[in-house]
């Protein structure tokens, strides 16, 4: 770790601006392990993700390539969509995307607060570096805020692998540079 893992004023500004891609990219530069999936989910240009992985430290990327992290990101988005529905959320694809963004914001908010406390209190071996348990802990907090069942965290990196039918139903929610729902007929459970 060459950079301090503390939350920087710039990272706070990114969160205040709801700019998740820049927030997680900044964390990626510090080798924050949670940033790998965070950036994979919120990056707008998929080539940027490919570039980050192919030019990055293989140990940091856990010896996994682009296909793996892209699948994890896609699975997470599908999982969140299903989890939101299980928790009572109903909406069009645009509304579902917006709600997933809100969950993403809360996850990032909690991440920043946990990193800050970890850094200030010198928890663990590396200040500012979270453990798997701390990461699971704050995801539960964020999920509970949206009534997403706790079981939707776990199974793979960030959620049980969705069923094929769920991929078919919700897979289009994960797409880069797409913020239009033009022509979409609505999510049908």
């Amino acid at each position: 770790m060459t950079n301090s893992l503390a939350i920087s004023p710039q990272e706070r500004a990114y969160l205040a601006q709801e700019d998740l891609e820049s927030f997680w990219y900044s964390r990626l530069q510090k080798k924050d392990p949670v940033a790998r999936i965070g950036y994979a989910i919120w990056v707008k240009d998929v080539d940027d993700l490919k570039h980050a992985i192919t030019t990055g430290d293989p140990v940091y990327w856990n010896q996994r390539g682009f296909a793996y992290w892209e699948l994890m990101a896609r699975s997470t988005v599908v999982n969140l969509a299903v989890g939101l529905q299980k928790g009572g959320f109903r909406g069009t694809v645009g509304e579902t995307r917006q709600q997933i963004k809100r969950v993403g914001l809360r996850v990032a908010d909690w991440h920043a607060q946990y990193v800050h406390n970890d850094y200030q209190d010198q928890i663990g071996q590396v200040p500012g570096l979270l453990s798997l348990k701390q990461m699971a802990d704050y995801h539960h907090r964020a999920f509970q805020e949206f009534n997403i069942p706790p079981s939707y965290y776990g199974g793979t990196w960030f959620g049980s692998i969705p069923e094929t039918i769920q991929f078919e139903t919700y897979g289009h929610l994960y797409c880069h540079d797409c913020d239009s729902s033009e022509g979409y007929q609505g999510v049908r459970p």
Partner: peptide, 20 residues
């Protein structure tokens, strides 16, 4: 009681800090 569902494959990733 909340049971934290940490996925088993996550433990192969050594980039995280240790838990107390």
């Amino acid at each position: 009681v909340v049971n934290l569902n940490i996925p088993p494959e996550a433990y192969t990733d050594k980039n995280f800090d240790v838990s107390d």
